[in-house]
Design a protein around this nucleic acid. Structure first.
Length: 770
DNA sequence: TCGGTTCAGAGTATT
DNA sequence: TCTGAACCGA
């Protein structure tokens, strides 16, 4: 046990050995968060304060859960498989499997991933004859997921207008469809599990008695439902050990509620608050930059990172005149780092949005530098894999209409849209599943459709005695999938992926079987447990495929530069980090600037980006960037100005802090960019000052329709793209686009702080600057 | 039933 | 500019 605590710093030590009470650990970036979390569990176990069954540790990603398990078993000779360590969704799934009856779920229920969910909603919208222009499936999907993440069933959603009421109806219909088909989406896993705990007192008390210690990773990322779920679970006196960093809260857009941290502190009267501020990752200048930046956020719980690594190198800043040149500089710098002996995979190139990767990839590719881009389709999301899984799902659950529709005519077997509609009509009339409706069909189409049904039935029967891997193998062959892809011109990779699915099945280990047969629910004989609800290996494998979509692409072998968004870099670290496109409108993103609290979230995002670097950090921005087919003119990000001068080194002539004459020294740079001129400047001059209410009318979003770009060239006070201007209210900015002419002339101006605006030149008073 | 064309939209993402 | 999805013609 002494060994466990040996190398902990005082704060870490304090956190690990806190009494069994609620605690909030503010864990700064690189402060040894995971170590504290796992050591805490190990310490509780080894001091016999709790048995493995009494611990529940929850994370957001499978990767984090796996890491926790691995590190724990490295510390203690404990079998982590019996412990409740997993993702929120994974643990909810586990609970629902054990109590599917109490949760009113069929024993064979399956999980819809986001893709499946969207398909289900599209199908619903079509069956209900709803106008998908007015109710885009994507919006309905968001609506449903948001409601569920707020813990709201259709009846509880407030709808004040017809549109919202219609959305609620669709939500209700969607839930009914899922229930009928025996499928649950991700949010439903959480909500069902929560409702189960709320509704079933015996069950709730059982779990409350069982879990004495509940540990939560990345607490700042929890949404309202997850917070309530934890509250229900720990309501019986369990100690919640919440670890998080409000400064790294970057997932508000997917429902995360940073407020949960403060709420937790308040509601649970948390007296055990430990700040982990010693950073073991970055050199001083990098941390100095991070600290200075994040200090600009209000409403922080408050933290300041420090290191005893020394100052290290300064943060380097580079200004390019175009995105292409930025990428070119990047390549040269990376080559130089490589020459200095830095491994390529210790270098990361970060960007705010995925679209930025193209230019960078192009430059890296041309230079012959190996790189790897994070993101993209994952293994279980691939079409061919999903097709195979659809057959498997039908074997497991004949009511799964989504799976039925996906493969009823794939590979093609002459079942057209008309036949499919016929089964759907029959199923609707009889209130049964599509599979069950097949036998009700008549006519020519009935034969082919029956043949498909017979195929599924045969697969079900034939695989009954087979192992999981044998079943998968059998299904991909006998369904015709392999043959189909083999005959396809570029189907080789798809066939390989199907083979890989067989391997995945062979390697699949049943997730702690005991948990599913009810026994592990506690040695407590009185436990309110569904009597033996064994899950088949196939059902477990399908759940695994949905809950863990797999790696984001296999590592490309060769040591490669890592390209990714700032979001996906969270939790990672590299010797050298390039943060590219550090420009107003891009980072902070213009959409975010318009959102409430958006700017602070962007700043946290920048904080996350900065703290990824161990030894070297580069920031780069460009004066122009090709975006949506147009050249955009940008200002450097305000975040650059928030960094401490003494920690920085400018690789290009330093531009003044905004607002100021940032374009100094680049005076003539705009020529050659084909800057358009537009008439109207004189009018702008003549317009009344914006004391009148007209100024707000002048600021509007130009709609797609008004196209014709002014081609009229006038002498005098004309504006041009790339020009620096000042506005009484919005301050200084750069014209990034011009549209219309005469009275309709508008300029789109990037004002930095004030965001990107369209201004009618006949009304807005714009002054030329510089 | 496929393949080409057209059109809108383009921010971050785990389960 | 580029992509994905929807649509239409053979």
């Amino acid at each position: 046990m002494e060994d466990l605590l040996k190398d902990l710093n005082p704060a870490q030590h304090a956190a690990v050995t806190l009494p069994p009470q609620h605690a909030l650990i503010l864990a700064g970036a690189g402060s040894g968060k995971t170590r504290v979390l796992t050591t805490r569990i190990a310490w509780l176990l080894s001091t016999r304060q709790v048995s493995p069954a009494g611990v529940l540790a929850v994370t957001f990603t499978n990767k984090a859960a796996r890491e926790m398990g691995t590190r724990l078993s490295a510390m203690l000779p404990v079998n982590t498989r019996g412990m409740w360590i997993g993702t929120f969704h994974g643990l909810c799934h586990r609970m629902l499997r054990a109590h599917h009856r109490e949760a009113q779920l069929s024993q064979t229920f399956q999980i819809l991933d986001s893709q499946d969910q969207l398909a289900a909603i599209k199908r619903l919208i079509r069956t209900l004859n709803v106008d998908d222009e007015k109710f885009p499936p994507r919006n309905i999907q968001h609506f449903v997921n948001n409601a569920k993440e707020e813990g709201l069933r259709p009846g509880a959603v407030e709808a004040h207008d017809d549109y919202a009421r219609r959305c609620v109806e669709l939500y209700q219909a969607y839930d009914a469809q899922c229930q009928k088909e025996g499928v649950v989406d991700f949010a439903e896993l959480m909500l069902r599990s929560y409702e189960l705990l709320e509704r079933d007192a015996l069950l709730r008390e059982h779990y409350q008695r069982r879990f004495e210690h509940v540990l939560v990773d990345e607490f700042q990322d929890t949404n309202r439902l997850q917070y309530r779920w934890l509250k229900a679970l720990a309501g019986g006196g369990a100690a919640i050990f919440a670890v998080g960093d409000d400064d790294q809260s970057i997932y508000a857009f997917r429902g995360a509620n940073v407020g949960n941290m403060a709420a937790f502190e308040r509601e649970y009267s948390v007296t055990n608050l430990v700040k982990l501020e010693q950073n073991y990752r970055s050199h001083g200048n990098i941390l100095g930059a991070a600290n200075a930046l994040i200090r600009n956020n209000l409403n922080r719980l408050g933290k300041n990172l420090w290191t005893d690594f020394g100052e290290g190198e300064p943060v380097r800043v580079h200004e390019a005149s175009s995105d292409t040149l930025e990428a070119q500089w990047l390549v040269e710098e990376i080559q130089a780092l490589s020459r200095d002996g830095l491994a390529r995979d210790d270098i990361a190139v970060l960007y705010r949005s995925n679209a930025q990767s193209r230019v960078i990839e192009h430059a890296l590719f041309s230079a012959g530098l190996p790189y790897r881009v994070y993101g993209g389709l994952r293994f279980f999301e691939r079409a061919e894999v999903k097709n195979a899984l659809a057959y498997l799902r039908l074997i497991e659950n004949g009511a799964d209409d989504g799976a039925f529709l996906r493969v009823v005519n794939f590979p093609a077997r002459g079942i057209g849209a008309r036949s499919v509609e016929a089964v759907q009509d029959a199923a609707r009339a009889a209130g049964c599943s599509l599979s069950d409706a097949v036998s009700m069909l008549e006519g020519a189409a009935a034969n082919r459709m029956s043949a498909f049904s017979a195929l599924v039935a045969a697969l079900r029967a034939e695989t009954r005695a087979m192992s999981l891997a044998e079943s998968v193998e059998h299904v991909i062959e006998r369904s015709g999938l392999v043959a189909h892809y083999r005959s396809e011109r570029e189907g080789q990779e798809r066939v390989e992926n199907l083979r890989e699915l067989v391997n995945a099945a062979a390697a699949f280990v049943m997730p702690d079987g005991a948990a599913y047969d009810g026994k592990a629910i506690g040695e407590d004989a009185t436990a309110p447990v569904t009597p033996a609800a064994p899950i088949t290996p196939l059902a477990a494998f399908l759940a695994h495929a949905a809950l863990e979509a797999g790696d984001h692409q296999a590592g490309e072998g060769a040591e490669a530069v890592q390209l990714m968004t700032v979001h996906s870099a969270k939790g990672l670290e590299f010797d050298a980090v390039f943060i590219t496109g550090v420009e107003e409108g891009l980072f902070p993103h213009e959409n975010a600037v318009a959102e409430e609290h958006g700017l602070e979230e962007e700043r946290r995002l920048m904080y996350v980006a900065i703290t990824r670097a161990r030894k070297r950090l580069y920031l780069s921005f460009s004066q122009t960037r090709m975006l949506h087919g147009k050249t955009r003119y940008s200002l450097k990000s305000r975040f650059v100005d928030e960094l401490p001068e003494q920690s920085m080194k400018w690789l290009t002539p330093r531009t003044a802090a905004r607002p100021g004459t940032w374009h100094e020294g680049w005076g003539g740079a705009w020529e050659g960019f084909g800057a358009q001129r537009v008439a109207g400047g004189a009018r702008a001059r003549a317009a009344p000052s914006d004391a009148s209410p007209a100024w707000s009318d002048a600021v509007h979003q130009a709609s797609r329709g008004d196209r014709p770009v002014a081609q009229r060239f006038e002498r005098g006070l004309a504006f041009q793209v790339g020009q620096s201007v000042a506005h009484a209210r919005f301050g200084e900015g750069v014209i990034i686009d011009l549209e219309g002419s005469g009275n309709d002339a508008r300029a789109q101006v990037n004002f930095g702080d004030a965001g990107v605006k369209w201004l009618a030149l006949s009304v807005a008073r714009l002054e030329s600057v510089g």
